[in-house]
């Protein structure tokens, strides 16, 4: 195992940031911690990178204990905190050079590891980090976290505030890094990114809701889900909420996702009901659950 977390809890004043968290990450695995802001993702990352003590529980990274062997962990992991912590007044190259030096290595020594990523920002190597776009800052921060060839990479919300193109490129980079046998623990508030991980842990209010592969998590969704649409979204939601057999209703883009209490769902009956509420253009069709559906069902 590359990362072992056993019964970790952590509280600040009156907030329970983490409650009895346990999971394991295999060597070379891309493991996602998926949850909204304030779920406890950053606290978990700080405990694993030896920056915070947990109140209870134990954790190891690469076999080292996060409390007693913190020095060894600090030598062998790469950490990218949220907000791309770079020196804004240093150029791209100077930032990379600096992080290489403090980890006792050089850019040349591990260039093959960052090459794919670095070539994309190399044309701007004399530009100050503060003047880069979000996507380029993200790439530079990743290079800096990788420059000492870490065994485990901790990426705390690496795609927050970055445009979709850069996000996509970033995940492609992570996939390539994974093939070099680096274990990656990544956190994100975007449910759609969950599908790109090998395994994920859904987390909310400091508690893990479920851990599994994205495919399995979606399969575990207990009920059939129906896409419903009509001419007026607001009236549709209100009408469905007033329907006697409703289990849940959530807007999902141009549709709402509807689940029924009963085992045998009758689409015609629902259509008639909605028509009686003066709705038109009604469409009801079966659809597949997404990670977000599962998350909401578990968090309910």
């Amino acid at each position: 195992m590359s990362i072992c977390v056993a019964n970790i809890s952590k509280s600040y004043k009156n907030v329970k940031a983490l409650q009895d968290i346990s999971f394991n990450v295999k060597v070379g695995e891309l493991f996602g911690i998926i949850g909204p802001d304030g779920a406890g993702k950053t606290t978990l990352f700080r405990i694993l990178t030896t920056l915070l003590f947990a109140d209870n529980g134990r954790a190891t990274v690469s076999g080292w204990d996060v409390v007693s062997d913190y020095k060894n962990i600090r030598k062998s992991v790469g950490y990218m905190p949220g907000r791309f912590s770079l020196y804004q007044d240093l150029t791209v190259e100077e930032n990379l050079q600096f992080f290489a030096t403090i980890f006792g290595t050089t850019i040349e020594e591990n260039y093959d590891l960052i090459k794919d990523i670095y070539v994309q920002i190399e044309p701007f190597k004399d530009r100050r980090a503060g003047k880069l776009s979000g996507g380029m800052k993200q790439k530079l921060a990743l290079c800096c976290a990788l420059i000492h060839k870490p065994k485990v990479l901790f990426l705390d919300e690496p795609t927050t505030g970055v445009d979709p193109v850069s996000r996509k490129e970033f995940w492609e980079m992570l996939k390539r890094l994974q093939q070099k046998n680096i274990t990656i623990l990544v956190s994100t508030p975007y449910m759609d990114e969950a599908a790109l991980c090998d395994r994920i842990a859904l987390i909310q209010d400091g508690k893990i809701l479920e851990i599994d592969t994205p495919e399995a998590i979606v399969k575990h969704y207990p009920k059939p889900i129906y896409n419903v649409s009509a001419n007026n979204m607001y009236k549709l939601i209100n009408s469905l909420n007033a329907y006697q057999y409703i289990h849940s209703v959530y807007p999902f883009g141009e549709f709402v996702h509807y689940t029924d209490k009963r085992a045998e769902f009758n689409a015609v009956e629902l259509k008639l009901y909605l028509e009686s509420k003066n709705l038109s253009n009604i469409r009801i069709e079966k659809t597949v659950a997404t990670i977000e559906d599962t998350f909401m069902e578990l968090a309910k």
Partner: peptide, 30 residues
């Protein structure tokens, strides 16, 4: 951005309600 999925749905329901009352909603986002 960053809000949990359930709250987010509630938020969109509020937006639908406002729109239904005739308020125009202009959302900038990436």
């Amino acid at each position: 951005g960053g809000v949990d999925p359930i709250t987010r749905r509630q938020f969109w329901e509020m937006i639908y309600k406002a729109a239904n009352q005739g308020i125009t909603v202009f959302v900038t986002t990436h």
